[in-house]
Simulated assay, not measured.
Amino acid sequence: MRFRMGVEEEFHVVDAETGLLVPEAPVLLDDLPSDRFTGEFQLGVIESQSGVHDSPAALRADLVGTRRTLDKVASQRGLTVVAAGTVPLVPASSRGFGPDIRYTEMAGEYQALADEQLICGAQVHVDVPDRDTAVRAMPRLSPWLPVLLALSASSPFWQGADTGFASWRTMVWQRWPSAGPAGTYASAAEYDAAVDDLIRSGVISDAGMIYTDVRPSAHQKTLELRICDACPDVDTVVLVAVLFRAMVVDACEAVARRAPLRPVTHEWLRAATWRAARSGLEGDLLDPTTLEPAPAHRVVCSMLKHLRPTLTAFGDWHSVAAATDALLASGSAARRLRTAAFDSSWREVVGLLADLTHAAEDEYEPRPSAPITEANTCVA
């Protein structure tokens, strides 16, 4: 099986001059191909959908092209788009919901949750053999998903203030009743029955409102990663996608050979996600191999060691190791944004985010912005 991957990226639409979030996604969609771009719940957010790819290089080229298309269309209207979990400048006038009747009903039912859904994520889809395998694979890879969140963390600011979190988007997102770690199910039928029970409860309206960290697609034979922030740096998105593919491959193979499943409690998974959202790459994370806290770089390296055979088999090991070292050396996007905000205005921070969103070179060669040391390398 090929285990291809695809990515959906969400972008904030902001005024290029003021840096304010604006409800102008519908204006941009008028000039964008409908098969690749869609609106979202909030009118200040636009989503892109990549093609399906075998290689990181092809995926990256697709994402870079998408961002350039968006930038060209937005700049013609005095706008720009930003890939980040949150943006700091959100006036009341920026809020508004898409015209879909489903969105209108959700806005009425969830009120403040809906009003504050001013967040963007990056979702990754990876092929799976079938939905039964997808559902059985979820608990095998769930303990590692908070590490991917830490790699992507890009949302320290909310409503003009520093939250103290690397991913405040996670805190906003997890207020929804169906968000958080995925459960453990014996089959797709059992999973679907649990979803039906939730819908009958009236707490959610449809299966599209299953907002767990990972979920099987309702329409394709894929597993979908949903825990990550949108990433200013396109190479972080590609890194997360390649790592998630390796996790899915390993989990599906473990399902096929009926390997014992190491039990990890729902409470531990929630704690690991909270820790990743709080710390990013700049503090401790919870290590799935020990269930104990450890410095983020050690947990990231533990993940790479765990995935190395599969990454090597796909020909991804060297590029992933180099990209991970570069990210560990430079720190999370959240840390870099805090550094920029120390002596800059919020408008300048938004400008930096926009520049990072559109700054990708045609070909990627990881270049760490800080010296590689023992504390930030995973390569022996």
Rank of each mutant, 00 (worst) to 15 (best):
G183P: 07
A186E: 12
E253L: 05
S178R: 10
D213W: 11
R175M: 07
V242K: 08
A230Q: 09
G180A: 04
R169P: 00
Q174K: 01
D196H: 05
A259L: 13
T265M: 12
Y191L: 02
A230H: 15
A272F: 14
V238K: 03
W168L: 00
V238I: 14
A259K: 08
R270I: 13
L239R: 02
R169Y: 04
A256Y: 05
V238A: 05
D197I: 00
S205K: 06
R270L: 11
Y185I: 00
H266C: 08
S187Y: 03
T273E: 15
A188F: 02
V237D: 01
E224V: 08
T236R: 12
V240E: 13
I204L: 11
I199M: 12
V249G: 02
T222E: 11
V238M: 01
A193G: 08
I227M: 13
A230W: 15
T212E: 15
A207H: 10
L243A: 09
V249E: 14
W168E: 01
P177F: 08
R245G: 08
A193S: 10
P260Y: 12
D197N: 02
Q174N: 04
R262W: 12
G208C: 12
R257C: 09
S187I: 04
R200C: 10
R262S: 04
A256K: 07
V248P: 07
L243Q: 03
E267I: 02
A182S: 10
H219G: 04
V172Q: 02
W268A: 11
A188V: 03
T265I: 07
L223D: 09
R200W: 09
V240Q: 14
D206F: 10
A194D: 14
L243C: 07
A251W: 06
V249P: 05
S167Q: 01
M247C: 12
